[in-house]
Design a protein around this nucleic acid. Structure first.
Lengths: 222, 222
DNA sequence: GAATGTGAACTCCTTCACAGCA
DNA sequence: TGCTGTGAAGGAGTTCACATTC
């Protein structure tokens, strides 16, 4: 195994999940024509501390200049490379309810290497419908769609009850990266990465924080 | 300050963010008529280790019986109380694009104490439209809506460019818990809790994992 | 005997302090 | 002098091992 300048291995997950933030902030700076940038400026734009940013970048073999700062264009390229954004990432969404349709129309899929190539549902009333430029397929078509388009990422936008069977169907078809919007946990083998976007949980956490604040206020007052 | 059986203070954030998972799993067990439950069973259903579950519950002053297990109904109440779900949480959504509309139709808001009471947008073409049982209001109406409905949680479903100003408007109106769906970081004073749901970031993290896998495979093969 | 509850060890992440370099 | 890059310290969260209780 040879030494590699930007070994993308052993980068902490916490760091990886912040790289997209840096990328976005960098895009804005680049658009404004900025050609040099301090860690302090970039960190502020991304909503983190400058030490955090520098430590994160150190994991990917840094590209700043001491006493000067960073070149936004260069840094953008380096981060994009680590995230694999130079490749093409075909995406499929299963579940064409309100959320699925909103996601299908979501511009975030169109940018940055992600490309929506298939929409699926198991409801015969929805199958065959045209949503945007795609036609909704039936679930049995999944393996063929995965083969044809090289689908790399599967999005689960079904109700909880169907989430596990959809995850299983994706896994069986060879899709090893899943984004689960259903408010439930899905089990998967270790070779499949599952990330959860859980709106109800976020609301609960917010409620907890407000309740804490209220109790603290009452405690001080009483 | 008196000792309190379930001091909801100093519960780790990580624990709080798992409580909703336990709550969901418990709901299913209760629905099935289960009256006793081991930490192992509940943990499996929630997708965590049993030691993790027991440690989490220990932070809220546990209510299990050694050698026996937990009473789902009792545990549900205790967790719901910690999360403040016995209260009513009026929610407002700003931004009636695809995502905002999907969220407005999202059933998760209806359940568990959350109640959608206001929809807002700054586009005159959208203001006055009826979405579900609500009519879209203009942004200047926000303070009045917050007062009238006691809005506790604000949802930001606008494009990135507007996210900060919407966050500021919520804060100025006294809403101190925000859920931000815009793919950007919003700044807020410490008394305002902001949580981010970032779909693009999740996709990026998944892409990174797949890319890692691919590189590892190539490395082994070559 | 069986399962909970928890101090202690361990791992992971963040922040600090400062060495290194233009 | 100014800002990056990083070892070391500190803090947070998870897992382990086992004492505790029914």
């Amino acid at each position: 195994m040879s030494a590699h300048p930007a070994r993308t291995r052993d980068i902490p997950v916490a760091t990886v999940s912040r790289l997209p933030l840096y990328l976005r902030a960098l895009t804005e700076f680049t658009a404004r024509g900025i050609v040099s940038l301090s860690s302090e400026e970039l960190a502020t734009a991304a909503g983190v501390r400058s030490t955090q940013l520098r430590k994160d970048l150190s994991h990917l073999g840094s590209h700043g200049v001491r006493g000067v700062g960073y070149d936004p264009a260069r840094l953008t390229e380096d981060i994009a490379a680590v995230l694999g954004l130079s490749r093409d990432w075909p995406v499929a969404i299963v579940g064409m309810g309100n959320l699925g349709r909103a996601l299908a129309a979501y511009s975030g899929f169109a940018t940055e290497g992600f490309r929506l190539v298939a929409l699926l549902d198991h409801d015969p009333a929805v199958i065959g419908q045209r949503i945007g430029s795609l036609v909704v397929s039936a679930m049995p078509a999944l393996p063929e769609l995965v083969r044809r388009h090289g689908i790399a990422i599967g999005v689960i936008a079904t109700p909880s009850a169907s989430a596990q069977s959809v995850a299983d169907a994706f896994a069986a078809a060879g899709v090893q990266a899943l984004l689960n919007f259903a408010p439930t946990t899905v089990a998967a083998t270790p070779d499949v990465t599952v990330r959860r976007v859980d709106i109800a949980t976020e609301l609960h956490v917010l409620a907890f924080h407000r309740e804490q604040q209220r109790l603290a206020d009452v405690g001080v007052a009483g």
